[in-house]
Write a protein that binds this DNA or RNA. Sequence first.
DNA 1: CTGTTAGCGCGTTCAG
DNA 2: CTGAACGCGCTAACAG
Lengths: 346, 346
Amino acid sequence: MATLKEISLKAGVSVSTVSLVLNNRDAGRVKAHIAERVRKVAQDLGYHPNLMARGLRTNHTRILGFLSEEVATTPYAGGMILGAQEAARKNGYVLITVSTDGENSEDAEIAVLERYGVDGFFYAKMSNRFTTVPSRLSNYPVVLLDAVDSHNTVTSITPNELLIGYDATKKLIDAGCTRIAYIGCSEPMLAQGKRLEGYKKALTEAKLPIDENLIINVFNNGPALHAVEKLMCTYNPDGYFCFNDARAWYVYESAARSGLTIGRDISVVGVDNHRVLAETLSPQLTTVELPHYEMGYWAACKLISMIEDCDTSKFALPSTRSPLPSLANNGTVTIHCALIDKESVQ
Amino acid sequence: MATLKEISLKAGVSVSTVSLVLNNRDAGRVKAHIAERVRKVAQDLGYHPNLMARGLRTNHTRILGFLSEEVATTPYAGGMILGAQEAARKNGYVLITVSTDGENSEDAEIAVLERYGVDGFFYAKMSNRFTTVPSRLSNYPVVLLDAVDSHNTVTSITPNELLIGYDATKKLIDAGCTRIAYIGCSEPMLAQGKRLEGYKKALTEAKLPIDENLIINVFNNGPALHAVEKLMCTYNPDGYFCFNDARAWYVYESAARSGLTIGRDISVVGVDNHRVLAETLSPQLTTVELPHYEMGYWAACKLISMIEDCDTSKFALPSTRSPLPSLANNGTVTIHCALIDKESVQ
DNA sequence: CTGTTAGCGCGTTCAG
DNA sequence: CTGAACGCGCTAACAG
């Protein structure tokens, strides 16, 4: 690793001149031909600044801390890290990811990241919920991922859960379904209530009745299958909106046992576009995609803009299936999730 | 963030004395009572060394670089990162994870990690395969994850694929199955050949015939389902060893359509213990767990031992379902994966 | 327009 | 037994 000093020696100028040139702060301060020579030598030596030394001096490291409660391990949410990483990379930043296994270790993890001099933090949760950000983070730029700040003060990005329920149900209505079931989630989650609300909104708008018999909440386990089978036999829904792709499987299995064909006899919409499940199921599952990658990407751009206190227009957002909200937004930002049309809706 | 200087001022000693004491190098060099005072002040001020400054001085940062080709995004392999992270944390290290989207960006990513002064690298692949490690890494300690070095020189950890096939098939044989099918993978993978080999080995040992009609390789898509249905109707296997949990789903679906009950009429064993799939399926899928967390944990301990050139006995390996190999091993290390007994084998 | 000087926070000689 | 002095690689004052 070449150093500034080596370059200065070889180019016959002082270290500070080299620093000036290589940081492009030589406009009208260093003669053009000498600046050129410096650049040449740097190029030849394959110079890259030592980021630790620079960080020590400038007090910013271009390291972002990614705090999560085992989010890295969930099959769903690795995409958030990937998206954040990608956006970070494009802007010359890097991620240190840390998982906290509980509230108690959290403080220690933050302390470690502080010692490395991170410039800001992501604070990610496993699924959309209200959260209070640790007070230790209050001096840093922070963006919440898949969680909403209880005090409604720190910027966050989450899926628009209501629209998920609305779009999915609308899809089934437009396909001609009139008796649409909702296979919900027994665990208390923000997403559960909102998606149900969207489901009801779509039905109401279409002047379809809300039949409480068609609404069930299940855990992700054996009894869930029986509950779905029973619902199918008893009330014969022609459409199913499922809280997630895993719950959609119960519909597939029940249909197979009942001799019903998905995409013809009944229609199904899930949520997640879970890589393994949604791709494996046959016919492929029409599902609303949770845009983890996109949320991560957005959060990183947002965080960097906060760190650099700069105009958000410098960030090029990728064009993705779920269009990203403007970076100018603050507070509780939501993202309209794309419905991925596959084969399970007639 | 308190500094050495602040402590030295408050304690009325010099900076170097503080450094000595706080690094526990004060044996017979600093008077006990003064050392005690220094420690007290440091405690009060909540002192933690600035890791960048230390790294600049010592040329090691306690940062580990985790290179992977989108491994972070696969639903399978996030566990590797988690395991590596956990082991790193326990030993005072931290991870910078970087995904390369192709061979070309790889070199640039490595360069970035070098500039941050990482002490060593993980080089992870998406699934067990032969790999040549980028020459740029040759000056660093490196551990390969879920991949084997083509030149057989850098240390790697991978699942013992042969035993996966053997154990899974043996499980079915012990349950009384005599016509055991193998639902394999059409993509060329190291794992495919080895698992098939283990399957055949178990059959041969049990003096069961190897019937090529019972062996099919499929992609993960619609036609796979038809292939499995056809196999089921035509040859009536009583046991199924599936390359992975996703392929096991085809057996579940086919069985449901044929009116067969899994765990009674036929038995199924998968591979992955994929969080969503294996837990959602009903009856729950008996499957061989790919110990991603464990591999990551092992790799981190190994890498740190290489960096510190220290005895491997200082590392406490967690007791996990798949017992970890000794850290004394070098070269191509494999891990015996645990079979998770659930409900799909009679 | 350029080079000298200083110091970020730390660890390590080397005198005293 | 302790503290002064130096340097890691870099940037930012300020002087020339």
